[in-house]
Design a protein around this nucleic acid. Structure first.
Lengths: 232, 232
DNA sequence: ACCTGAACACCGTTCAAGT
DNA sequence: ACCTGAACACCGTTCAAGT
């Protein structure tokens, strides 16, 4: 609320609106733009994680003053929103033949969603805290349409989607954070071994060292899909 | 690494180690202690959320200087760890008769876990980022033992546990954050309606307005458990 | 239209010092 | 053993001003 100016304005203003800016003084930085800001934010986030993104650092990388960002963007949260939605863009597979393999389609969509987030490990944990951007909505729409086409009744559609959402988000958030600290996990398992009288079962199964994330994801997903929309 | 002193030391030092402290000057604050710090941190987190917890504010509520906390605690992260594990304490149900209803036991454990986190909506999003504390390990141990007793093969145990973990965490994190912003969701659905040519399916099912969280959680969980360990 | 620096009200934590 | 204040190196953002 209380929208200032900016936002959309900043976005369109670069595409030959008024005049072609005189050739940029030698090879100094190109002018600021939403595109450059988002791209650089992604770099920073990938390199330094969520806490690494700072308005000041971001501006620094862009070769501008910290406050210049605020003409293009309302606040730091908007930077997060834009970066997040950039990650979630869905490039549909090259519309091959009409498959009627809805299960395969769904699995593909979900694995692509997960993979997109894992490519930017900060993104999954951010997603549930933010409003759903257009790219995420598109993914949900496509998922919903596919499930619906697969015969899931309208009354069951929301449960199906949220179940799958919960599973994918949980898997990806966990994977994204646990993965960063493989050392911690080894240390954890060690501590577990020392306390093996207290945690015998998970010590024995080496729960904390298990790292077949992809396999576990896929197998759990199959269980869930079996229930959500039984194979025909 | 590089452990200073403190930590465990601070913890035990209050229980009549040296001498009974002279009756606290009138009714001013009791002395600092890990217990008080954690309890107050919980209050602050419940009231203000993750960003609301500040070492300075925490000390303020405790009637001490900001730096006094650092004798009891290594850093802010440790405060989070302690608060988180406090939330996850599991009070087992009054060991009634030996039930052999493993499925009921598992469902109870998972619903209790979810409910514990939802009572402190900041906690779920924190859990995947932190090392697993003793209370969480106990929960996993109990879960593991129960599934194992229900006939899940050792080779499948980790997949089963991580699947369930993923689902519960995803559901709880999502619920915890979406719930805070019911207005946003209504606004989102409104925006969706305006864009209904772009997102017809999820617009029609009113996905963003669905709020039978408990029912959806339970139904999705049943699907998953059916797959993880088929009803005998 | 776009960018800037100074300033404000915050942070977590180190350090040297108090009792 | 326990607590403290001053200080450092940061934050996000407002504001009034520059071009």
């Amino acid at each position: 609320m209380a929208a200032k100016r900016s936002g959309a304005q900043g976005k369109r203003s670069r595409r030959m609106d008024v005049a072609i800016p005189s050739v940029q003084a030698s090879r100094s930085e190109p002018p600021l733009s939403l595109e450059r800001i988002v791209a650089t934010a992604l770099e920073l986030l990938d390199a330094q994680g969520v806490d690494g993104l700072t308005m000041r650092r971001l501006a620094d990388r862009l070769g501008s003053g910290a406050m210049s960002l605020y003409w293009h963007v309302d606040n730091k949260e908007e930077v997060f929103d834009l970066a997040l939605d950039a990650v979630l863009e869905y490039r549909r597979p090259p519309q091959t033949v009409e498959t009627h393999d809805w299960r395969g389609d769904v699995v593909h969509m979900l694995e692509d969603w997960r993979a997109s987030m894992l490519r930017h490990p900060w993104s999954a944990a951010l997603l549930p805290r933010r409003a759903l951007g257009p790219n995420m909505l598109s993914r949900l729409e496509l998922l919903s349409k596919t499930l619906s086409g697969a015969g899931v009744a309208d009354a069951d559609l929301n449960v199906a989607i949220w179940s799958v959402w919960n599973y994918v988000m949980g898997a990806t958030i966990t994977r994204g954070s646990f993965d960063l600290s493989a050392d911690d996990r080894a240390a954890g398992q060690l501590r577990l071994t020392q306390l093996s009288e207290r945690y015998p079962t998970i010590e024995r199964s080496r729960l904390l060292l298990d790292d077949d994330w992809n396999g576990a994801f896929r197998r759990g997903l199959d269980f869930l899909l079996d229930g959500v929309a039984p194979r025909q």
